[in-house]
């Protein structure tokens, strides 16, 4: 739900301000790849209506966000491709593919894709965080968006602890990826929490 909320916050921000200054389209592209790799099971496995609906919403809304930022004026006119230039194709995709291949529990296409998607998701926030560090001053809605985008994985960790004790659920790759992902946010959360506590604008060092 936090993940969904962060997407809705971003959509709302783009529609309201008609600007995507401070938003990394490259992060959304990473997520689009994550979703496409992971949700291949839409074609051969049914888990629940909720599960299917969320997958469809995640994929379609993420592609829509990319479309808005890259191609749809007036939002696309504000997209700064020079600032948002983190080369994830080299730094994230390659390593995620290699790690996915090495650490997959079995060498099947769905398993390798799923594993690569976990590793890629864990670092997908990097283009966004790096963009914000260049700009330093973060708009309120952008701050809320990034905070919810980080918080959802933290709540997964709580759920994994519960599931481990309640059902003996084990998911080593998911756990490791989730810890890396949440860890990358710790620094941002600190400055976010401080800005909320003191009621000031979020300014990154």
């Amino acid at each position: 739900m936090l993940h969904l909320m962060s997407i809705l916050l971003l959509l709302w921000k783009l529609k309201k301000s008609k600007s995507c200054v401070g938003i990394s389209c490259r992060m959304q592209e990473c997520y689009a790849i994550v979703f496409c790799l992971r949700y291949l099971d839409l074609f051969y496995q049914f888990i629940s209506v909720y599960n299917t609906a969320m997958k469809v919403v995640f994929i379609s809304s993420t592609f829509y966000l990319i479309f808005l930022m890259r191609f749809q004026p007036p939002v696309s006119a504000t997209y700064d491709r020079t600032a948002d230039s983190f080369p994830y194709e080299q730094y994230l995709l390659g390593p995620a593919a290699v790690l996915g291949f090495i650490s997959a529990e079995e060498w099947s296409i769905p398993e390798i894709f799923w594993t690569a998607s976990i590793w890629l998701e864990s670092v997908s926030i990097l283009p966004q965080l790096i963009l914000l560090q260049q700009l330093r001053e973060v708009e309120n809605l952008t701050a809320e968006f990034v905070a919810t985008m980080g918080a959802y994985r933290f709540f997964y960790i709580l759920n994994w602890i519960y599931r481990y004790f309640a059902e003996g659920y084990v998911n080593w790759i998911g756990w490791l990826g989730g810890i890396v992902q949440t860890g990358l946010y710790v620094d941002f959360f600190y400055y976010y929490a401080m800005s909320k506590w003191y009621g000031q604008k979020l300014v990154l060092p």
């Binding site: 496995q45 888990i47 599960n51 969320m54 997958k55 995640f58 799923w114 997964y156 998911n171």
Partner: peptide
């Protein structure tokens, strides 16, 4: 069983 682990998370 572990071999039939369903990936029920998003």
């Amino acid at each position: 069983g572990k071999e039939e682990a369903v990936k029920d998370e998003l």
